[in-house]
Design a protein around this nucleic acid. Structure first.
Lengths: 171, 171
DNA sequence: GCCTAAAATGAGACTATGTCTCGTAGTGAA
DNA sequence: TTCACTACGAGACATAGTCTCATTTTAGGC
């Protein structure tokens, strides 16, 4: 599953989204065409998955490893700091160039949002907002940071840190 | 354009997403197949657009009509209160049943997010977060409210009000 | 180690989606 | 009217996405 997504993303970055057919992806991942569609409902879903994983999976891992006494916001900030943001400009620009790819990327973000919500639930106090709302705010910050990063340049971690801080200090 | 989207949504609600082909949509909207694809990159994009418009366009209109002295959060709350939330359960459940439809709906939400950001920019003070972050929080609240509404029942406006308040009181 | 049930995969046919090119019809300005 | 421009339609085409069934792989009891 992950192998298929990573093949899809690799080919899409190398040759463009249009030139990357499902047959080529399946061949590269050493599965049949039928198996591809058993795991992904569309070509763009697989590409978006493969582009998103290397960026956000490390963040989730880091978040899960944070000491349990840390409040939610602090744990999230630490997780993003620890995970070296390996997002490439090529990947981000490829995503932005296709409406379909953008839509599927948002869909995957929603999955990460749910994961983050689950991970921070035990860290929340009475006065905090609901976990899903906070997680949605985090993913929105990620999305806006990548946008700013593409438009204005500079290091992505700096954009991330600033936007997350701006979201967090509203506690 | 809007006519095509509304035809697509109508047919999808009536006969299901799979049974609704692009040819039927184009026929219903009295345009050719080629014209359909000139306005929408995919069938699901059109259906999602048609399902989203009747729900969120009135909110945008109401927000634009709010007196300019109102702070952003108050204007948003008032806009959602004024616009009778005409979202139907059928539409929401159709959206949730298809991953592709959900993805495109998120994409349209992002468009509304940008519109909201533009409308509240003049209402923001120094201490507020950026307009896009606030707008993202609003759309996240909408999404989570619809989710709760489907799962737990009760009137949608009530869910909306509660979630938006929860997001707003973190100012 | 072998057998069986269940799950995962592959092969291939089939329909619908999405792209492209080109010809035609409106629309507005000089 | 004429010209340029834009929107639309027709139809061919490649590929996406679905379906069915045969085959392989896997897991677990004996």
């Amino acid at each position: 599953m992950a192998r298929i997504a990573l093949s899809a993303a690799k080919l899409a970055v190398e040759q463009g989204l249009v030139a990357t057919t499902v047959d080529r992806i399946a061949e590269d991942a050493r599965v049949s065409r039928a198996t591809f569609f058993r795991y992904f409902p569309s070509k763009e879903c697989a590409v978006a998955d493969g582009l998103t994983r290397p960026f956000l999976d490390p963040v989730i891992d880091a978040l899960a490893r944070q000491p349990s006494h840390l409040p939610a916001i602090e744990a999230i900030l630490a997780a993003f700091d620890e995970a070296a943001c390996t997002q490439t400009r090529e990947a981000a620009e490829l995503t932005r160039a296709s409406a379909t790819l953008s839509a599927w990327t948002l869909s995957h973000h929603q999955r990460y949002e749910q994961t983050i919500a689950d991970l921070i639930t035990p860290r929340l106090t009475e006065t905090d907002a609901g976990p899903r709302l906070i997680a949605a705010l985090v993913m929105a910050a990620v999305r806006l940071s990548v946008e700013d990063w593409l438009d204005q340049g500079g290091p992505l971690p700096q954009h991330l840190h600033r936007t997350l801080r701006s979201a967090a200090c509203r506690q």
